[in-house]
Every structure is written in C-alpha cells, then in structure tokens.
C-alpha cells in the first residue's frame, strides 16, 4: 500500500457511461492489483483495478463505469487535478505457473485483463481472450486486445460476436490453455467455477478501507474467511465459495 498524490492526465468517455482515467505520478503496481481513489465530497474511497501501467511515464490508467454519485463525480475530474490515491493494494494475479494462459472477461471485468494481457505478452506468452460485453455500444479495448492476440467476443444482445455470454464461447470453441484468468460479474464467475476449476479470478467488491482493516469485503473460501482487498482480489477459483 502506498498513499500517493496523482495528477489527472486524461479523463474521457470511451463508450456509453465508461470513462478512461489516466493518472500520472503512480508507483508500479502488478496486474490485478488495485487502487482506492478519494472522490471529493464522498467519504469512502472508490476501488478500481489498473487497466494499464506505463512504467516510462509513471502513468496508471483505469476504466470506470458511472454507476452512482461517486463515479458521476469522477467524470468531473479535470486534467491537472491532484487526486488522493491509495495505490498498490491487493495481491494481483500469479503469473508464475501458466505456460498457456486464457483470459476471460465480462463487462468492466475486462479492465484488469488488458494490463494482464500486456504483461503476459511481454513474458512471451501467446494471448487468447474471451470477452463478453452487454452490447456493441459498450465494447471497449477491442482493438487493443486484437493487437495482442486472438479475441473471441460475445454480447448479450448479439450486436457483436456471439449472442450470449463467455460461457457460450468456452463451451463451443475448442480453446487450448492450461490456466485461465478471469474477471467479471459474480454470476459469470460462479458459472465459470462449475465449468472449470483451473483458474484465477479477480473479485469485485464494495470496500470500506481497501487495506484489510474493516472486514467490509470478507468472503467465504474453502480456506476460511478472506478479505477481497487484502488476501485478494485475485483468488484461485476453486477456493471461492460462491453464494
């Protein structure tokens, strides 16, 4: 955990209600780690996974969806504005064992997978991504993922790619991999857990503190109670007890 003051470099809408926020002055954080952003006038910080990290410029990118007052207020962040951030939170993905990774993302859960994909590519891995979006208008990072490797797409309404969800793709396509890395809505992760147990999932949760003090985000696992913010947000999928 590092408490840092970052500067807004960019804050733009990239798809319906989805914004890209680029911050400078950020320490390195690993793929899957997250940050807690202080939004003026709001008490609790807002947690976001890193979408990208540019080591050369100390630029950290996140993508956020406007879902309530806090994220709406974030759309007002102006270039040059100083932001109070707790950085380098959580554990991040374990990249040490995979020889043939598969990335599976749903909705805004695709965000941390982009940074992960870049890191895996850097390590010499072939990148295969299965990405599920609500509809064509809410697609983002398509071009970026395509540049890194093979991409399978699903949309709930069929406006792009396969009509359905990522599971529909995984069950029909014969994709070769040894370990998957997933992030998405709870219903998707639960379905994934009954489909295959050899993977890691990054969980989303509302949080109080983001660094293990308040127990606001505790989940049940096969190894006892774990805090999404501290022992996670990345867990082995077979350890998570999905409610």
């Amino acid at each position: 955990m590092k408490k840092e003051v970052m500067t807004v470099v960019k804050n733009v809408e990239i798809a319906d209600k989805l914004y890209l926020l680029v911050l400078s002055g950020a320490s390195y954080l690993a793929p899957g780690q997250f940050l807690q952003i202080k939004v003026p006038e709001y008490t609790l910080r807002r947690p976001f996974c890193a979408a990208d990290y540019d080591e050369k410029n100390d630029f950290l990118s996140i993508i956020y969806k406007v879902v309530g007052g806090g994220t709406k207020a974030m759309t007002k962040f102006e270039v040059g504005q100083k932001i109070d951030v707790l950085n380098c939170l959580g554990n991040g993905f374990d990249l040490s064992k995979t020889k043939k990774p598969l990335l599976i993302g749903g909705g805004v859960g695709i965000v941390p997978l982009f940074y992960l994909a870049k890191e895996l590519k850097k390590q010499g891995h072939e990148i295969i991504s299965v990405l599920g979006y609500p509809c064509k208008d809410q697609c983002f990072f398509l071009e970026e993922f395509s540049k890194l490797g093979k991409v399978y797409i699903s949309t709930d309404d069929g406006s792009l790619g396969v009509k359905g969800n990522v599971l529909d793709i995984l069950k029909t396509e014969d994709i070769e991999y040894d370990e998957f890395f997933a992030c998405g809505p709870p219903i998707m992760l639960k379905a994934l857990s009954s489909w295959n147990s050899n993977g890691q999932v990054s969980l989303e949760s509302k949080m109080g503190c983001g660094f293990g003090a308040c127990m606001g985000c505790s989940i049940k696992t096969t190894k006892g109670y774990k805090r999404v913010c501290k022992e996670g947000p990345v867990f082995k999928i077979d350890e998570v007890i999905f409610e």
Binding site: Y42, T43, K206, G208, M215, G216, C217, S218, I219, K220
Partner: peptide, 17 residues
C-alpha cells in the same frame, strides 16, 4: 463470519457498516 455482504456503504460525512 458476520453479516452477508453488503456490509459497508458511503454516506455524507461518514459511512455505514
């Protein structure tokens, strides 16, 4: 274990837990 999630919530000038 405590209560099911959600357990925390933002509020003006404070929070709920």
């Amino acid at each position: 274990y405590g209560n099911p999630l959600e357990r925390v919530c933002d509020c003006p000038c404070g929070m709920l837990n």
